[in-house]
Measured scan of single mutants.
Amino acid sequence: MASQGTKRSYEQMETDGERQNATEIRASVGKMIGGIGRFYIQMCTELKLSDYEGRLIQNSLTIERMVLSAFDERRNKYLEEHPSAGKDPKKTGGPIYRRVNGKWMRELILYDKEEIRRIWRQANNGDDATAGLTHMMIWHSNLNDATYQRTRALVRTGMDPRMCSLMQGSTLPRRSGAAGAAVKGVGTMVMELVRMIKRGINDRNFWRGENGRKTRIAYERMCNILKGKFQTAAQKAMMDQVRESRNPGNAEFEDLTFLARSALILRGSVAHKSCLPACVYGPAVASGYDFEREGYSLVGIDPFRLLQNSQVYSLIRPNENPAHKSQLVWMACHSAAFEDLRVLSFIKGTKVLPRGKLSTRGVQIASNENMETMESSTLELRSRYWAIRTRSGGNTNQQRASAGQISIQPTFSVQRNLPFDRTTIMAAFNGNTEGRTSDMRTEIIRMMESARPEDVSFQGRGVFELSDEKAASPIVPSFDMSNEGSYFFGDNAEEYDN
């Protein structure tokens, strides 16, 4: 783990906690998980779902989305002020799938948001429990990260689609708070800032007046979040320049895209947490497990152990491969979309394939898809080993990566060399080191050039047997250095459309 220093740990961010010791953190995270579980059980009762239907990941996603929508204050306010045809701002819903006479049927349900809020609060001892809501947002974000390569979004903001390893959390809503900021990748933060800068260039009043003052505060806050992700002084200094700019424009845009590229080699610290679907927490609570009393951590053995003992089902389209669908969801559960496939294969105990080789589309089923041909199958979400999630980018030494994705962002704290394609990355730096950030740029390029592919990161860190909950005997895996390590390699994943 990167030293926490003055930073709060993510469990504290996750639970809005002030400084807590490890036991208190485990208890408050457990409380959050228990609340999600209780809410899910109650919703299944309301909807009269069978046990099997309640364990269907598509039903879980609909129920999670309903509660997130019920608590989305800004959108609710907007919907009330701008009524649109056929949208009731006070209601929320989605597809629920039921097994009827041996076939899967889709039923569109509609609930009062007020009623959903009441059920959620009741499951969370009367609190709004925003930490639990954020947790579900991060699960949705991790699922998107594993399912889609955001080529269009990258290109629109002047970045290269091969930089997708920097895009963790790119679909997280803005209201996801400190826990959300911690899991956002460098590219995601750059993209958010670039969008602001572009608006400022096109709209003279963007930075002016009372609204402009708020915009400015948001801009500086985002700059500080991004600065905190960088691990070298030169990158941090460049972020200070971007933040202090009187009138952010093209120079800042250039600096930010430069920094994003540099992060492929001088990786930023991005938190990883295993956020599971509500249909995993519900049955665990129903079986009598007391998360608050037992304590829970999002970055240790607990999620692995929970998945070892969970039964989750998914709808499967006619030509999809259930094992591939399982891999997709497994990666999402562990926030591992940008991790090295060699490491993932070792931990999972079966070969993890790149996205383009998977015969599976996303987990969600569109409303126009034919239910007649839908089957369902068990998702295999178990693992051979477990490993500690990392909050750091690993040290800054790398190795060759593949054509589709030119770097990785480690999820697990496991000893290995970190793949990246130096030639491709360095070719993108057209040696432009003039301007006010020239000395920093020169320094950053120097550090990137001296990074050695064969150097090892996370020295001495290994994986653990599932029986080793105290992480007492690390097993340090050895990897084939020459092997392909990137998930979005030469990829044809669908595009994420909101």
Rank of each mutant, 00 (worst) to 15 (best):
S450E: 10
R121Q: 03
C275I: 08
E46I: 02
P95L: 09
Q58T: 01
R400E: 00
M66G: 03
T171C: 15
V343H: 03
A271R: 01
S383Q: 10
L341V: 08
G132V: 09
R118I: 01
G5N: 14
D439S: 05
L256P: 12
I116W: 07
R267M: 11
A233K: 06
F253D: 02
I365C: 07
C333H: 01
K184H: 08
Y10D: 02
S3P: 09
D240W: 03
D468T: 05
N205V: 06
R118Q: 04
W207I: 11
A284M: 00
A2Y: 01
P89T: 06
Y40C: 07
N432E: 12
R261M: 10
L298D: 06
G158S: 15
G180W: 08
Q235A: 10
L418M: 15
T411N: 06
L172F: 08
K229E: 12
T45P: 08
R38I: 13
K357T: 03
T360C: 12
D480H: 14
G349L: 04
E107N: 15
L193F: 11
H334L: 10
V463C: 09
R19E: 02
T396A: 06
G30D: 08
N21W: 14
A182R: 00
Y40I: 04
R195D: 01
D72I: 03
R446L: 13
A401S: 15
S60Y: 06
R446N: 12
G169T: 05
K236C: 14
R384A: 05
M1R: 13
N125T: 12
S402I: 01
A233P: 15
I217F: 11
M447W: 06
R246S: 08
Y487P: 04
L266C: 13
F489P: 04
K198Q: 12
I109A: 01
A129N: 13
G185V: 07
P173T: 11
L307S: 05
L328I: 10
N224L: 09
A332G: 15
R293Q: 12
I138P: 00
R382S: 10
E375L: 14
D240K: 02
D421N: 12
Q235R: 09
M196W: 05
R98K: 13
N124R: 03
Q149A: 12
T92D: 05
V183H: 14
